[in-house]
Every structure is written in structure tokens, then in C-alpha cells.
Simulated scan of single mutants.
Amino acid sequence: MNTHHHHNEHDAMSGSDELEQLLKLAASQPAYRPAFFRQLLDATVYILGDSEQVQLQGEITLDAETPVNIQHWEKQDGSSVVPFFSSLALLQQAVAEEEHPFIAMPTRVLFEITQGDHLFLNPKAEYSKEFFPDEVAMLLATGGVVKPVERDIEQETQLLLGQPTEYPAAMIDALTTLFSQRKLVRRAFLALIHDREVDEQPNLLIGLDVKGEQADIDALISEAGMVASETAPNDDPVDFCLVEENARGVSHYLVNHTQPFYQRRWGSWLRNAIPSTDVSSSV
């Protein structure tokens, strides 16, 4: 029997297993949707179909220019979808062991060559997901998250800050789950903010104490915005701001007058920082 030593936990789970796990979680929990989309866009997927070039040369690298015959399936309502699969096992299960040519290709390439089509990930599996053309276009453009609208609050503006009377528990749970997947967030705070100049109603505000590269922070805020908009009570708008320790205004209120709803566990940080010593004695 061959044994493999895994240096970190991630290797132990293959990419397709991890993708299927994220699809299952994302089905019921918006907090996992950004990670699912990220993983999907980096994955290799399997489609039913063939390409003359593949038959000629065996293994080839497909790009959006390669002519490929992709099999479509008809749904019960008569519409047509392109089935694609996160693993060969699920493909074989879906075609019930019949012989079928298939092609492995990066998800991005599949999305590019089928633009305008409906796609269906893992049909017939326990967890599957349909992708509509505009969703695919957005995934290709932004990785599946809508870019937040930024606005600067003028110094003179009278902002009213407080706490929401109705605690947005589902949203806070989902954001906590998202933040715990990402190392960037040190603490996260919740408030209700009312900028009378701009809005009739107060908005929920999430303050983030983050450390990291600007691009990673921007991506995180987009993901958090997507999760928040899917879980906020009554579809309320949600604002995000970055908290600075000694700043005035909003940051001061959040840091000094509210408790963080999320605090990164120091334990996990320390564990990574201490070099592990190998205690097994060599014979």
C-alpha cells in the first residue's frame, strides 16, 4: 500500500472534495459562497463532449479558442443546460457508467466558451447548482462579488451612531463564519449609523479592524458585502468601514463604545508563530 505524508491539512482533501464540500455549505450558508466561487474559478472541471484536436493529440491544453463539441442536456421545462462536474466520479455517476467522451478544462475556460448558456454543476448529485448567463458573466468579471460603492463621509456631517434595536443575528453569524476563514480580520464591530444628509433611514454599519495587503482587504470587503446583503434583516443596506485604533469619529465610537462581535483567536495565531519541535526520537 502506498502511503502519502501530508504536510498540511489542505493537501489531505483533494480540490474536488473541497469544492463539493464548499458547494454543500454554500447551499445553505451565504458565508461560504465567496469561498465556493473562488475555489470553483480556480478548479478544473469535467464536461461531456469532445474535440477533434483532443482525439488527434491526446492531452492538449484547451483555451477559449479551441473548437469543442459540448453536450447539452434538456431540462424538464425544455430549456437546455450544459452539465459540468467537479469530479470524474460525479460525471460517471451522472451518465450511469455509459461510455462518454469527456474533457477536463479550467472552469474559467468553460465559462468563456459557453457564455450565454445556462450551466449546471453536478446535476444528479446530492448538491448541484445552476448558473445563469448573467451570473457567469459576473463571475468572470469580478469573481462573483459585487464591488461595493465607496463614499467619503464629510467631516462636518452629523452622524448619529448607536446600536440596532433588532440584533441582526443571522448576518452576524454569517460574517463571523466568513471572517474566521480569513486571517485578515482582527476584530469586527457592529453599529447603526445615520447620515441624515444622505439617508432617511439609519444603516447597519460593520467596522473592520484588518491587517493585510490593500488588494486582499478590498476583496474581503466585497465578499463581506455579498454575505451581508444576503443575510441582512429586511434586505437592509449594510455599510462597511475600516477601523483605525486612534482615529476620531466612527472608529473612536466603535473601538471605545462597543464590543467586537468577532475577535480573531490569538491561540490560532500563536500556534502558527511558534516553530513546532519534532519530539519523535529517531531510532
Rank of each mutant, 00 (worst) to 15 (best):
Y46T: 00
Y46S: 03
Y46K: 02
D50N: 15
D50W: 14
Q53K: 14
V54G: 09
G58D: 06
G58Y: 04
E59A: 08
I60R: 12
D63M: 09
E65P: 00
V68C: 11
N69C: 03
W73T: 07
E74M: 05
K75H: 04
Q76I: 02
Q76N: 02
S79D: 07
S80R: 15
V81M: 01
V82F: 09
P83S: 02
F84Q: 12
F84C: 13
S86N: 11
S87K: 03
L88S: 02
A89G: 04
Q92Y: 00
A96F: 00
A96P: 01
E97W: 02
P101G: 05
F102C: 05
I103Q: 06
A104I: 03
A104V: 07
P106R: 13
P106T: 13
P106I: 02
R108E: 09
E112G: 15
E112N: 15
T114S: 14
T114F: 03
T114W: 02
G116K: 06
H118E: 07
H118D: 05
H118W: 08
F120R: 00
L121S: 03
L121Q: 00
N122V: 14
P123K: 02
K124Y: 02
A125S: 12
E126L: 15
Y127C: 09
S128G: 15
K129P: 09
F132C: 01
F132L: 12
P133F: 02
D134I: 01
L139K: 01
L139D: 03
L140I: 07
L140V: 10
G143H: 08
V145K: 05
V149A: 11
D152W: 11
D152F: 08
D152T: 14
D152V: 15
E154G: 08
L160S: 06
L160D: 03
G162V: 07
Q163T: 15
T165F: 06
